[in-house]
């Protein structure tokens, strides 16, 4: 069937309209996410600056508000340096894998009621799968650069992500059991019907495990061993420059936002607020859901900045001990408790 015949068929107009709507949705989500990435870097520097009694960026624009724009222009015009011994195709591919995996997770996150690009039944598993594919970007970047620093960084990252993914997956099992679904929209709805309005209260153990594991999964401090700057210069992306470096940077921040959004949708009630609050203050019902979602998301991201400004980095053996000897048993205990309560009630 040629394209023309397809267009002449009855009903094909609806198909095109449908595809157009999806493309538009994707464009909006990606643009908003990229804007957030730019300003997440600004606020990270600002927040940590103020916590350490500094001002943070102040020069470009009022209060340094245009700093992300300046950074972007600088990264865009920087020379693209590729090491002589690098495995070129893999070197080119690594940042693309990282960013694509991070961006594709955005597709299943419900930002407010009814707004999700792909409302699939296995949304939660999809995010876990995408994050496990994203690891390849890091491992391959380290290997393809043929530099000892980046290689060590990528090996550390591989071991770290494998260990913490287990804990993260197990910590979400409690939520799945309570909601009875893997669909993120259904999970948010189940929380709205729950007396406390969010699963963070009954699933406090799972929430703790998830927050710690998410920090390790996105290489955030205090688990930023893959890029420990005082041992490995910058870890796996030390040989990357210009736009390729920017892709890694964007992937890292989007990864952080995905983990934040996952915490919001699975534990903090997504776009809803608990009924007992709207019972006291009924006018809050008129606030659109996206506002609540973003407020909760900003809080989780602020929390990660806060942790970074407060805690020193763990040693590698401590990192492994926390993952295997503390978080995984805790997550298993959480599943057991949830199961017993589910049967009892």
């Amino acid at each position: 069937m040629s394209v023309f015949e397809f267009l002449m068929q009855p009903g094909s107009f609806d198909v095109i309209l449908n595809i157009g709507a999806i493309v538009l949705k994707i464009a909006i989500v990606v643009a908003v996410a990229m804007f957030h990435v730019a300003y997440a870097t600004y606020f990270e520097r600002k927040v940590i600056g103020h916590m350490q009694v500094r001002m943070g960026p102040m020069e470009v624009g009022p209060h340094g508000l245009l700093q992300p724009v300046a950074d972007m222009i600088k990264l865009f015009f920087k020379e693209d340096v590729i090491p002589t011994n690098a495995d070129k195709p893999v070197f080119y591919l690594a940042p693309v894998i990282s960013l694509t995996a991070a961006l594709s997770s955005l597709a299943v996150i419900p930002f407010f009621d009814g707004f999700v690009i792909a409302n699939i039944n296995i949304g939660l598993l999809f995010i876990l799968a995408a994050s496990s594919v994203g690891t390849y970007g890091i491992i391959l970047a380290g290997w393809a650069s043929s530099s000892k620093y980046s290689f060590l960084g990528s090996l550390r990252s591989a071991a770290q992500v494998i260990s913490y993914e287990v804990a993260m997956g197990l910590s979400l099992v409690g939520v799945i059991m309570m909601a009875g679904s893997l669909n993120l929209t259904d999970i948010v709805r189940a929380q709205a019907d729950y007396p406390t309005g969010m699963f963070a209260v009954p699933q406090i153990l799972g929430f703790f495990v998830f927050i710690v594991a998410a920090g390790a999964e996105t290489n955030r401090s205090p688990f930023d061993l893959p890029e420990a700057e005082n041992e490995l210069v910058a870890g796996y992306f030390v040989e990357y420059s210009g736009m390729r470096f920017a892709l890694f940077y964007a992937a890292e921040y989007i990864g952080m936002m995905i983990m934040g959004s996952l915490a919001v949708t699975c534990f903090l009630g997504g776009w809803t607020i608990p009924h007992f609050i709207t019972g006291v203050l009924p006018f809050l019902d008129y606030v659109p859901g996206i506002v609540w979602f973003l407020l909760k998301l900003y809080f989780t991201i602020f929390f990660y900045y806060w942790i970074r400004a407060t805690l020193p980095r763990y040693r590698y053996d401590q990192l492994m001990a926390i993952g295997w000897k503390l978080l995984i048993p805790l997550a298993l205990l959480n599943i057991l408790i949830t199961g017993i309560i589910k049967i009892a009630i």
């Binding site: 296995i122 598993l125 999809f126 876990l128 799968a129 496990s132 594919v133 690891t135 390849y136 491992i139 290997w143 090996l155 591989a158 071991a159 992500v161 494998i162 993914e165 997956g169």
Partner: peptide
């Protein structure tokens, strides 16, 4: 099965291979 295939094979087993 599709999601599990990616999580288990691509996410865990193949990373160990690479290692």
């Amino acid at each position: 099965l599709a999601a599990t295939q990616v999580i288990v094979y691509a996410g865990a087993i193949l990373v160990l291979f690479l290692f």
